[in-house]
Simulated scan of single mutants.
Amino acid sequence: MSLSAHHEADFQLEGPLSGRKIVVAMSGGVDSSVVAALAARTGAEVIGVTLQLYDHGAAVKRAGSCCAGQDIRDARAVAERIGIAHYVFDYESRFRESVIADFANEYMAGRTPIPCVKCNMGVKFTDLFALARDLGADCLATGHYVRRVVGADGRAQLHRAADPARDQSYFLFATTQDQLDYLRFPLGGLPKGHVREIAAQIGLPVAMKPDSQDICFVPDGDYASVVRKVRPDADAGGDIVDVEGRVLGQHKGLIHYTVGQRKGLELGGLPEPLYVVKLDAASRRVIVGPKRALAVGAALLADINWLGGDFAGACMAKVRSLAKPVSAKLEGDRLLFENPEYGVAPGQAAVLYDGDRVLGGGWIAETVSAIPDPSHIHSPA
């Protein structure tokens, strides 16, 4: 991929960029580093901003994280390499309160949280947005893989990335219209391989740096250890019951389970595999059933963020980050699935699409079983 393929239109600012100012959110990874380098080549004044979200000492050896000690040094090294100003802002306490504490509380409430969305809603966009404005920037550019398309009305629309394997639109559904008008996503039309090629051509020190993991503050995928630090009562046990309320065993804390989970139940001698169907935080019960008990016909959405225009109700809905969009219809705050959907969990998001355009989305507050009375599910003879 030649650098000549990238021009001023990538940042969607009118006129010559020589008199413009672009703030780039730099996490220390290859994606945001390439965005900063491309911005610098436009002739605009470019400022790299990194938010420090962890204790420097504790984070420096954490592999696969972002916004930690080593990542901050990487961002600074890239800024020096391409000749732009770079600032680090300490947002550790804000991140701990708005993202990590929320993550723990959601698990304790029997929901499946998405901290990446909460981070984008708060620290990454709301706070960084304000910083960029204070610095007098014409736009805030990030390394997210989504596309910003200007509609006929002059307002920005959010579209899926050209590379479906890298698309991050699910995590950005809560972006507001005002934020979207100000944000820029120069990598949305590129495959990841081309981005690494650009980094190598420029000679960026992070060209071959591995991608960060989805949940940056969870070392080794051990969610329970993170929740315990915030909520010491996280290991309170309780009953594992079937959909008819019969006790089948005991568990060691709701934080070890999510809706749709099969492994780790430690229930032997049963006629068919059982899955986690629901987590009842009030009674500390893990409710299990056969796979057909996971079928969901509808979901009630809360805090819906709308980015689309005219809407007839029919849409495609994505209820997990790695799930394929399915046909659905939104009626008020009720999302009706054309066919039963599996693994839909309260706490997750339902993101709505019209083709590649993100219409908006909301948080799944409650699910409605596709089976009228799940307690009447019986194993086949």
Rank of each mutant, 00 (worst) to 15 (best):
D74A: 06
D74L: 02
A75E: 08
A75F: 00
A77Y: 11
V78S: 01
V78Q: 01
E80V: 13
G83H: 03
I84M: 02
A85N: 15
A85W: 03
H86M: 04
H86A: 05
Y87S: 10
V88E: 02
F89V: 14
D90T: 06
S93N: 11
R94S: 11
E97A: 14
E97M: 09
E97L: 09
S98G: 10
S98V: 12
V99F: 13
I100M: 15
A101I: 06
D102V: 15
D102R: 15
F103Q: 08
A104L: 05
N105G: 13
E106R: 07
G110V: 00
R111T: 09
I114Q: 10
P115S: 08
P115D: 04
P115I: 03
V123E: 06
F125R: 02
T126I: 00
D134K: 14
L135Q: 03
C139Q: 03
A141C: 10
A141I: 08
T142R: 07
G151Q: 01
G151E: 00
R155H: 15
H159Y: 15
H159K: 06
A162C: 00
D163N: 14
P164N: 08
R166V: 00
D167C: 06
Y170N: 04
Y170A: 02
T175S: 15
T175M: 12
T176D: 01
Q177R: 13
Q177M: 10
D181V: 12
D181I: 08
F185A: 12
G189T: 04
G189D: 13
G189M: 05
L190Q: 11
L190C: 06
V195R: 05
R196S: 03
A199R: 09
